[in-house]
């Protein structure tokens, strides 16, 4: 069964500056001893007390200001970061869509990039070859697919990446927004495909600043603030509190 479960999960980043990361300092520290605060590595508490229970069929929106921990939480939920304390258990094949550019090689053709990208997302070569026509149609890139990726404009790259991502069958789909730089007509088309993808996915977590997108794709929401979960619940309620809007008036009789 597809699920993500975390209990009191914490994510702390040690920040090694040039000095403290070096072996010299550690060795000298061991010999000399008694170096107090200076020998400590500064730590950023990115996430604190994260307890979530997301199951098959759940569609969770992630809201919060910049730096509230949305992206880090997505990385925790994907299993990229294992918690520094607390626990996390991710069951199911994860398809993270955080950075559309990662794993793309500018020197090879669009077609080759489609295959590689698919392999990265856990597909087999055979599965990707079977999908390549569908992806090529969707991207509308035509003969450009045989050109190296470095000749593509930003928008064309986004099309390619979206084409691959929306063609797979993920069990756990983790979306971080940043799907910009595409023209409006294409975005409409991508929306259709995105919601198809979400329908196919066993479980969705979607970080976005767009109410419209959130309402279209999600049913519940998590509100992040300063690395903690401020509120979890139905999307409309969380959004309302997050925006500081008044409670809806009682429906008129």
């Amino acid at each position: 069964m597809v699920s993500i479960r975390t209990v009191d999960a914490t994510v702390d980043f040690p920040i090694f500056d040039a000095k403290s990361r070096s072996l010299k300092k550690t060795v000298l520290g061991m010999v000399g001893g008694n170096i107090d605060s200076e020998s400590k590595v500064p730590v950023i508490n990115a996430l604190r007390d994260i307890t979530v229970d997301i199951n098959h069929g759940d569609r969770v929106g992630l809201v919060g200001h910049n730096g509230a921990g949305k992206s880090t939480l997505l990385r925790l939920l994907s299993g990229i970061y294992e918690p520094t304390s607390g626990t996390s258990e991710v069951r199911g094949r994860v398809a993270p869509v955080f950075d559309l550019g990662v794993g793309m090689d500018p020197e090879i053709s669009g077609l080759e990039n489609i295959i590689i990208r698919g392999l990265f997302l856990g597909m087999t070569r055979k599965q990707m070859v079977a999908r390549i026509d569908d992806i090529a149609d969707f991207t509308e890139l035509g003969d450009f697919l045989r050109m190296p990726l470095r000749t593509y404009s930003t928008g064309m790259r986004v099309r390619l990446a979206l084409g691959v991502v929306t063609s797979i069958d993920p069990e756990i789909l983790l979306l971080d927004e940043g799907i910009g730089a595409v023209d409006a007509a294409f975005l409409e088309k991508a929306r259709g495909r995105l919601s198809d993808l979400v329908d196919r996915a066993g479980l969705l977590v979607f970080a976005s600043h767009s109410d419209e997108f959130l309402e279209q794709l999600c049913t519940t929401a998590i509100w992040m603030e300063h690395g903690r979960i401020k509120e979890q619940g139905p999307l409309s309620a969380v959004l309302r509190h997050y925006k500081g809007l008044p409670e809806p008036a009682e429906p008129a009789p």
Binding site: I80, D99, F120, L121
Partner: peptide
């Protein structure tokens, strides 16, 4: 680094 931080492989 990029792959490690973006994909749970």
């Amino acid at each position: 680094e990029g792959l490690i931080k973006q994909l749970p492989a």
